[in-house]
Structure formats: C-alpha cells, structure tokens
Amino acid sequence: MSAMKSSGWVYTFGLVAAWYSSNIGLLLLNKYLLSNYGFKYPIFLTMCHMTVCSLLSYIAIVWMKMVPMHSVNSRVQFMKISALSLIFCASVVSANISLKYLPVSFNQAIGATTPFFTAVFAYLITLKMESWLTYVTLIPVVAGVIIASGGEPSFHLFGFIMCLGATAARALKSVGQEILLSSEEEKLDSMNLLLYMAPIAVVLLLPVTLFVEENVVSITLALAREDTRIIWLLLFNSALAYFVNLTNFLVTKHTSALTLQVLGNAKGAVAVVVSILIFKNPISATGMLGYSLTVFGVILYGEANKRSK
C-alpha cells in the first residue's frame, strides 16, 4: 500500500515538474525568439503554437484517447467556443508582443494581477460580489505592480499596455468560460476545449498575420536557409505550448484547482529568478519589492477565496 502511495507521489511530483518546465521553458523561449534571437513576429509565432496545438490535441484525444472526446452539440455552443477562442488569441498575442519589450521578471509581475481582473470581470458580467476581505487582498496585488513599474529599469509603455491587456484577456477568458460553458451539456474539459479552440484560433490569426506581418512566411523560410535552427526552435516552442496545456490539465486532475493556484504563484517566482540568471536583465530593489508584494497579495487572495467558499 505504501509503495502505491509513494509511486503516486512520484507521479504527481513528475507532473508538477513537467508543468513547471514547460511553462517556464515556453516563457523563456518566447522571450529568446522575440527579443534576443530577433524573430519579431509574435502573431505568426502564436499561429504556429495554435497549429501544433490543433494537431497534437487531435492525436491525444482522437488517436491516443487520453480523454473521452466531447462533441459540440449546437451552433450556439460553437459560437461560444469561437468567442472564447478570440479572447484566447488576444491574450496570447498580447503576451507575446509584450515579451518583445519587457523582461520576463516584469512580465510575470504584471501577469500576477490576473486575480484582480478576474474579480473585476466577474462583478461587471455577473454582478457577483465577493466578500469584503477578498477585495481587500487585491490592494497589495495592484499596489505591488504600481511599485514594480516605478522601479523597473527596462520599463516600456507599449509593452506594459500589451502585458496588461494579455492579463485582462486571460481573466476574461476564465470568467467567460465559466459562464458560457456552465451547463452540463456544454461543459468541456480543458483538453477538449483546446481541441476546438486551437483550429478556430488558426483561422482567426491567419488573415491578421498576413495583413500585419506580411511576407513573414518567406522571411522565415529565408531565415531557415541561413540558420536551420529557427525551424527546430519554432517546432519545439510550439510543442511546448501544447505541453503547457496538457500538463496544466493533468496537474489539476491529479491535485486540485487550489493546489494549481498555489503552484502557479511559486512558478512565477521561479520564472523570475531563472530569467534574471539567463537574460541578466537589470532589476531594482524597488522592482523586487513590488513583485513580492503582488505575490503576497495573490496568496492572501487565494486564502480569502477559500474561506469565503
């Protein structure tokens, strides 16, 4: 019995390690490609992610049967999934654009304000009020980002706006997903949702890519002739984008949403440390203080949420 329990712990630890590695790896590789390598096409990069996610989702669900496949039951449900896909695209594209201009450490500090935007959208859309304690815990979340912004040596206004937009879109997607797919007939697990959202995202992103980042395909092919690494980097980067979603689903399934939230807070801090070590971006004491305050606020928010339920 103890051997089974121990193997269960090893499996869960392995899943969490895979989730951390894929999350932080994707973030750092996106930063490397868009900023250090000089591949300045964030929309095309997102489209590559969604194309590979479509293919790997199909293989995992239809061929490997990792989870039962759920069908889309109505045109209305399809429209809801399409709306979520549009918000998802906006979030990922904005996040990738922000990485061109901001260091990963500051990007993570802004991303930690997701609970603030979630609470705002939940109230605006559903008029659902949280307990006063929950709202009080959001004060250090926002204050921390304001302090971090003031002390950020590499602050870039456009990058900051893009990162805020990505964070808000991420929160809007989670609130929208809860509302739009709340009925038992329409509920989809995250793997099935990605199976339907990713191809829709490709269709949405293709015309935008061709219009905003014209000649990106010929530029990428020309770049590949000079340096074949770019093809492998794009393929590996896109596969990582899928594994982020896969490991996210598996960790939630084998632990709980609350555990995932706690692990997510720690992941942000690990990503900050690793990115500073790799990219050696300057960071001030004020910036670190602000980020620490935000993470502290997020932890308090999680605790307040748990108690209110």
Rank of each mutant, 00 (worst) to 15 (best):
L235T: 11
L235M: 13
F236Y: 09
F236H: 11
F236N: 05
N237V: 04
N237I: 04
N237K: 05
S238I: 05
A239E: 12
A239M: 13
A239W: 08
A239L: 12
A239R: 07
A239T: 12
L240W: 05
A241E: 06
A241L: 06
A241R: 10
A241G: 11
Y242K: 03
Y242A: 03
Y242L: 02
Y242M: 04
F243I: 06
F243W: 07
V244W: 10
V244S: 08
V244R: 07
V244G: 08
V244M: 09
V244H: 09
N245V: 09
N245E: 10
L246N: 08
L246C: 09
T247V: 01
T247H: 04
T247F: 06
N248H: 09
N248P: 03
F249C: 05
F249P: 02
F249E: 02
F249H: 11
L250I: 05
V251M: 03
V251K: 03
V251T: 01
T252P: 03
T252E: 11
T252D: 14
T252F: 05
T252V: 14
T252M: 13
T252K: 11
T252L: 09
K253Y: 13
K253M: 14
K253F: 10
K253S: 10
K253V: 06
K253P: 06
H254R: 13
H254W: 05
H254K: 14
H254D: 13
H254Q: 11
H254T: 09
H254Y: 10
T255A: 08
T255V: 08
T255I: 03
S256H: 06
S256R: 09
S256C: 10
A257G: 11
A257K: 10
A257N: 15
L258D: 13
L258Y: 09
L258V: 15
L258P: 07
L258G: 12
L258A: 15
L258K: 15
T259F: 10
T259G: 04
T259Y: 10
T259V: 13
T259M: 14
T259W: 11
T259I: 14
L260C: 14
L260R: 09
Q261W: 07
Q261N: 12
Q261Y: 07
V262H: 13
V262L: 13
V262R: 08
V262C: 11
V262T: 13
V262S: 11
L263G: 03
L263T: 01
G264Y: 03
N265W: 04
N265Q: 15
A266E: 02
K267N: 15
K267C: 07
K267T: 15
K267D: 06
K267P: 02
K267Q: 15
G268V: 07
G268Y: 09
G268I: 07
G268L: 15
G268T: 10
A269L: 10
V270H: 00
V270E: 00
V270L: 03
A271T: 01
A271R: 02
A271I: 02
A271E: 00
V272A: 12
V272M: 14
V273E: 00
V273Y: 01
V273A: 04
V273R: 00
V273L: 08
V273I: 12
V274D: 04
S275T: 03
S275M: 04
S275P: 02
I276Y: 05
I276G: 04
I276T: 08
I276V: 14
I276K: 01
L277H: 04
L277C: 09
L277I: 10
L277F: 08
L277Y: 03
I278S: 00
I278D: 00
I278T: 01
I278M: 01
I278E: 02
